[in-house]
Design a protein around this nucleic acid. Sequence first.
DNA 1: TGACTTGTCAAACACTTGTTTGAATTATGT
DNA 2: ACATAATTCAAACAAGTGTTTGACAAGTCA
Lengths: 221, 221
Amino acid sequence: MKLKPAVELKDESHDETRRHLLEAAGEVFAEGGFREATVREICRRAGANIAAINYHFGDKETLYLDVLRYAHGKALEKYPPLPGVTEGAPPEKKLRAFIHSLLLRIFDKGPTAWQGKVLLREMIEPTKALDSLVEERMRPMVGQLWKIVAEILDCPVNDERVRLCGFSIVSQCTFYKHCSPVVSRLFPDKLPQDAAGIGRLADHITNFSLAAMKHVPPVKH
Amino acid sequence: MKLKPAVELKDESHDETRRHLLEAAGEVFAEGGFREATVREICRRAGANIAAINYHFGDKETLYLDVLRYAHGKALEKYPPLPGVTEGAPPEKKLRAFIHSLLLRIFDKGPTAWQGKVLLREMIEPTKALDSLVEERMRPMVGQLWKIVAEILDCPVNDERVRLCGFSIVSQCTFYKHCSPVVSRLFPDKLPQDAAGIGRLADHITNFSLAAMKHVPPVKH
DNA sequence: TGACTTGTCAAACACTTGTTTGAATTATGT
DNA sequence: ACATAATTCAAACAAGTGTTTGACAAGTCA
C-alpha cells in the first residue's frame, strides 16, 4: 500500500480520475470557497470514491493548490494576453485590444468560468498560490499594458503616471466582475449580456481612458 | 426558561453581551466568512458562553444578518457620503470630495475596518442581506454621484454616459480594495499608506476622470 | 504463473460543527 | 423579602467534516 502516488505519471491519459477531480474541485471551490467545499461533494461530481482525493493529492489543501495551478494553465491557453495585434500597431489600437481581451476573459461563461471565481476568492483570502499566480501570469500582463500606456503618455515606463493610469484602466474592467452583485441589483439589465455589449463596454473604457490620458495634468510629488 | 429574548430591550446599555457578540462576530466573519467562522471563536472573543449566540440571536445565520445591519449603521455614521461640501459648490469640487470620502472609507483602519471585508465577501457570496444594503446605502450614494457626473457632462442624469462614467469613477476607487492582494504583490510599497497618499490618489482619480469626461466622445447605440 | 504495484471501494475513525439542555446565577418587580 | 423573569453556564447531543483503514480488483513485469 502506498499513500502518495508517483510524482510523475508515465501515461497522463490513463489517469482520468485525477483530471475529473481537478475539474469537479474547481467548480465546488468556486461555488463555496475552500472551507465550504466538501471532499464528498467533489468526489461525487467526479464520480470517484471518498478516498480518491487523499490518494491522488494527499489532502484537501494540496488539491486546492493544484486546482489553482490547473486553472492558471487552462486560462492562459484559452486567453492569450494580446491576441492578433501586430507589433507596430498604434498604441490606441493595442489598448483597445488589451481592454477587450480582458473583458472577454472576465465575462467568460461556460465550463471554465469557475476559474475567475476561484481567482476572485484569492482576492479576499490570499493563499500561497496567489504569489506564483501574480508573478507568472499578472506581472507579464501589466508589463504589456505599461508599455502601451507609456507610449500613449509619451514618457518612460517607470513614470508614476504610467502606474496610476494603468491601474485606472484595469480597474474599470475588473469592476464589473468584482461588483457584479451590486451592479446587477442597481440596474438589473445593465450588465453586458452578449458580445456586442462587451464590445460597447470596451469602447467606452477605451475612449474614457484615452481621453483622460491625453488631457490629464502631470502629478506633483 | 425562555428561548428568545424580548423583541425590545428596555435598557440597551445593560445588554452588553449582545453588543460584544456583534463586534466579535464582525471580526470573525470578516476574517473567514460565514462558513469558516465558528460560534465558539465568536463567543470566546466576546467573552461569552457558547450558548450566548443561540440565546440572543436564535441561530448563527440571524447573527450574521444582524452583523451586516450593525456594520451598515456604523459605517454610515462614521462616513457621511458627502462631507462638508456646500450645495452650490462647483461639480469638480463635489467630485473630488466624493472620491476622497470613498477612498477614506476603503482604506479605513482601526476597529471598524472589518465592515469593508464583510461587504467584500458579499460580492462573491451575496446573501439576502445584500439586497437591503444596496437599496438603503448604495443606491442613494450612486444617486449623488450621478447628479455630479450629469452636471459635469452637461446632460440629463438618465443618460447612458452618466452611468458608464459613474462606474468608471467608482471602479478606480474600489480597485485598490478589491485587488489589494495583487497590487501589494506587484508593487509592495505602492499602496497608499497614509492620509497624504490617499489624498494624492484621490487627486489622480479626480484629474483622470475629469479629463476623460470633458473630452470623451458620445457613445453610439 | 506469481509476486508486486496501482487504483478503487465501503466502512469506520477522530474531530469539529451548530445547537440544545437543564441547572445555577443574576436581575427585576411587587 | 419573596417570586418571577432574564441571563449565563458547563455539559452533552446529533450531524457533518477530513482522513485512515484494510480488503479487493486490475494491471505490470519478472
